[in-house]
């Protein structure tokens, strides 16, 4: 199954998915941190637009994932990998709470960060580099915890 043709197809669809995702973010206004903050500012002059972004995305997503759940292989023949973890634990909740604080401070989350990087903005570059370092710190902490448990 994993021949060169399917690998090229996988790369093409990855690139295309990323591109369409990014175009969607720009069109939706999600790539504009000021608009994201205006959505989170429910006590101020509230811009509800981004609620509709979630609505539009989830509307399509519900159909796609309903199909995906019934299949084991993708249309390109790859196994469909849906998350299996069902545990709602401290890591999930505290991590997400922390992410929200960062998001609320500047109005940038990971996907739009790459779109900002692509505009050549210095601020976008700074954010992405710091975010990757943050993910690296997570890996280090995880490795320390794992070796500490042995």
């Amino acid at each position: 199954m994993k021949n060169n043709t399917s690998n090229t197809a996988a790369l093409t669809f990855s690139l295309l998915s990323g591109l369409i995702f990014g175009i969607g973010l720009i069109l939706a206004g999600m790539a504009n941190p000021a608009k994201v903050l205006a959505f989170l500012d429910i006590a101020g002059l509230w811009d509800p637009s981004l609620g509709l972004v979630m609505g539009g995305a989830i509307g399509i997503g519900l159909i796609a994932f309903a199909i995906a759940k019934k299949r084991s292989l993708s249309y390109l023949g790859f196994s469909i990998q849906l998350p299996t973890n069902r545990v709602i634990d401290k890591r999930l909740v505290l991590g997400s709470l922390g992410f929200g604080i960062g998001w609320g401070l500047v109005g940038i989350c990971p996907a739009p960060a790459f779109v900002l990087l692509g505009t050549g903005s210095i601020k976008g570059i700074i954010f992405v580099v710091a975010m990757v370092i943050g993910m690296g710190i997570y890996e280090l902490l995880e490795n320390c915890t794992k070796s500490g448990n042995k």
């Binding site: 991590g95 997400s96 709470l97 922390g98 992410f99 929200g100 604080i101 960062g102 998001w103 401070l105 500047v106 940038i108 989350c109 990971p110 960060a113 700074i126 954010f127 992405v128 580099v129 710091a130 975010m131 990757v132 370092i133 943050g134 993910m135 690296g136 710190i137 997570y138 890996e139």
Partner: peptide
């Protein structure tokens, strides 16, 4: 905030 978002999301 980039650091916070990187660590928090992971």
């Amino acid at each position: 905030t980039g650091l916070i978002v990187g660590i928090g999301t992971r």
